[in-house]
């Protein structure tokens, strides 16, 4: 169950055109989650990541340090695909993130909570929220943050298709319940020799342009009734879609 506040944030996110114009949405999300700062970093291939949202200087610095060192709750959340909740940074055993402590001790950050953005082995980025005071998030806040991370994942992975005429892809969160969508993603990644994130984009683009549900397209791919070509089309029909080269 998400809060009314987060439902409003998600609505604003839908209206918004891109990450750049989202400062207000980010600030609102931080307020709803009851935190002092919020960042969103997106993976840009390999080990690199780019800071896309940042509502607060301390939060931004903390994220920068994590990205530079490649260690901390954020990188751990990205690696495992599971949230990392640190209600009191001072209580973390030093050996857990040996370099982080020294670099962040001067920052006004006492608690950090990181939520992975991704689908299985596809890692899109991390949503991080920080507080200047120690203490856990409530169950409701954790749930809200997870839903926000999920919505941001969908945006990051669907933005290419959305760019065509400004609408979001027709597939919903529910389609990701189907094993067959993930199986098709794996198959297309091998067929086209692209990362899994790209493979999912191609599948979504194809579903979008053909007006069929993603699950149907996926079933056809898994049954080998459909094979996408390098432009994301089946057998060369239709118009090629622009697909980002980013991972």
């Amino acid at each position: 169950m998400i809060s009314d506040g987060m439902a409003e944030v998600l609505r604003l996110l839908q209206l918004d055109v891109g990450f750049d114009a989202a400062a207000e949405v980010a600030a609102r999300a931080a307020e709803t989650l009851g935190v002092d700062g919020l960042t969103v970093s997106l993976a840009t291939g390999g080990d690199r990541a780019e800071l896309m949202w940042c509502t607060d200087q301390a939060a931004g610095r903390f994220e920068d340090v994590q990205l530079t060192l490649g260690e901390g709750p954020g990188p751990e959340a990205a690696r495992t695909g599971a949230m990392v909740l640190v209600p009191d940074l001072a209580q973390v055993r030093p050996e857990r993130w040996p370099a982080l402590n020294g670099e962040t001790s001067g920052l006004d950050v006492r608690a950090v909570f990181c939520f992975p953005m991704g689908i299985g082995a596809i890692r899109v980025g991390v949503l991080t929220v920080v507080r200047r005071t120690v203490g856990p998030l409530t169950d409701g806040q954790v749930g809200d943050a997870q839903v926000l991370a999920h919505a941001l994942t969908g945006r990051a992975l669907g933005s290419v298709v959305a760019g065509l005429d400004g609408t979001v892809p027709a597939d919903s969160a529910d389609t990701l319940l189907h094993a067959v969508v993930h199986q098709a993603t794996g198959m297309v990644s091998v067929q086209l020799d692209v990362p899994l994130s790209q493979a999912l984009l191609r599948l979504r683009a194809h579903a979008y342009s053909s007006g069929r549900p993603l699950t149907d397209i996926s079933r056809d791919v898994v049954a080998r009734r459909l094979r996408l070509d390098h432009n994301g089309n089946d057998n060369g029909n239709g118009n090629p879609l622009p697909v980002s080269d980013k991972d």
Binding site: A82, M83, A121, H182, Q183, T185, G186, S189, V190, L196
Partner: peptide
Amino acid sequence: HSETERSQLQYALTSRIVLEQVKGILAE
């Protein structure tokens, strides 16, 4: 370093999706 039950649940769900993606990779 597991902190919370919710983090464990999320790890389990993520693992399941990775497994499906890998079935596709190997099948192809």
